[in-house]
Design a protein around this nucleic acid. Structure first.
Lengths: 212, 212
DNA sequence: GCTATTACGGTACGAGCGTACCATGAAAGG
DNA sequence: CCTTTCATGGTACGCTCGTACCGTAATAGC
């Protein structure tokens, strides 16, 4: 057999090119030729690693989700000073803050999340199921953290963890797009998140609200 | 001069066709030919009333905004029983509930709002300014109602009207898309809204949470 | 009654898209 | 060594899109 190439690596390279191009010119307006040019490969190669355009778009979506997870994990790992596990409030803050377009990477994530969602709503080819699965997973994590906080007595017992989790995730996603659209500033969005975190954790001193 | 035609009426007719088609097949995938066919007119006529595609898209956006305003106004007018003005809580409920995809009309509105927002983020031609202006106007109305409620003693004085207004609007928009994406059910979304309305108005009896 | 203008139909053009097809170095397996 | 398989390049096809161009029935103003 001839020289072997790491297919996953190549797919990541091309998916990254897709993300960069789509963030600049729009997801729907991004063609396979443009992705190929951005990745520095030939059109044929994009076809080779992602047979069809639909597959390419799905690949880009998955690539984004993986990136998001990795960044959130890094933030959580960083927030737990000393040896103990991270406290619920910091976990929530880390996850919610990832959805705000504070730097170019997160801006791209927020922007493309919106674009993918919009496409999924009408294009049956881009199934929304992976998107839904991802979101439900995040929401479950949030709810679990809220319940843990209630068990620790850090969060009022009369609040509903599930409803608050859905609210927070929805609000966080909405705030991200809101900032992108220019409806509110990044500081305002962060203030809204902090406001609700203070409401949920009235007695936990905030030592960090999301800046690196 | 030859027979005069009501241009506004024709533009409304075509914009409505655009909205219907875009809700079905996606905004980006909707072409001028398809809009023409849906409206029962020729392609040439769409060109005649909206010179270019960009203008057509902008026209559709404005059409949506007008529809939204009219529906919200109708709900508010309907909610004030007796002769007095509507109470802040009902006004808020009416506006927030309009963003939930409870029927086909509202579903179309939510869906296309997301699509327009996504397009605006990368397409400089579709200026986000009108979209921003609309949202800011709604947000201002919400904040004013919250302040009025505080003045009446119906809302705790320690809550921040502006932050709460932004939160509510963002959350309401986010919930709408969340329902469309299948992240949560309509009932869940309504529950989240009611939950926050109860939090803001602890002493106002809810007589109606949005069903017609 | 002529004329200028309005409201519309049909159609062709150039560009760009996704996809399919054909060719070819290069290296692993026998 | 020779063959098979992998990774890649190039290119042409068919389609659809937005736009521009040409034509024309009908009517209001002079």
């Amino acid at each position: 057999m001839p020289r072997r190439v790491d297919h996953d690596e190549r797919r990541r390279q091309i998916a990254d090119a897709l993300v960069r191009t789509a963030a600049r010119r729009g997801l729907h307006a991004t063609g396979m030729r443009e992705v190929a040019a951005e990745a520095g490969v030939s059109l044929r190669l994009v076809q080779y690693y992602f047979g069809t355009k639909e597959e390419l778009l799905l690949g880009g979506m998955q690539y984004l989700a993986v990136q998001f997870g990795e960044r959130a994990m890094a933030r959580i790992r960083q927030s737990r000073q000393g040896g103990g596990p991270a406290i619920p409030r910091d976990v929530l803050s880390a996850i919610l803050t990832q959805a705000l377009p504070a730097d170019d990477e997160r801006r791209t994530f927020t922007l493309l999340s919106t674009a993918y969602l919009a496409l999924s709503l009408t294009d049956p080819a881009l199934a929304i199921s992976p998107l839904v699965r991802n979101s439900n997973a995040v929401s479950d994590v949030l709810a679990a953290q809220l319940r843990a906080a209630q068990a620790d007595g850090d969060m009022p017992a009369d609040l509903n963890p599930d409803l608050e989790a859905v609210s927070l995730m929805t609000m966080s996603a909405g705030l991200g797009t809101s900032v992108l659209a220019g409806h509110s500033s990044l500081e305002q969005a962060q203030a809204v998140i902090d406001y609700h975190l203070r409401r949920l954790f009235p007695h936990v001193g905030q030592h960090d609200s999301g800046r690196p």
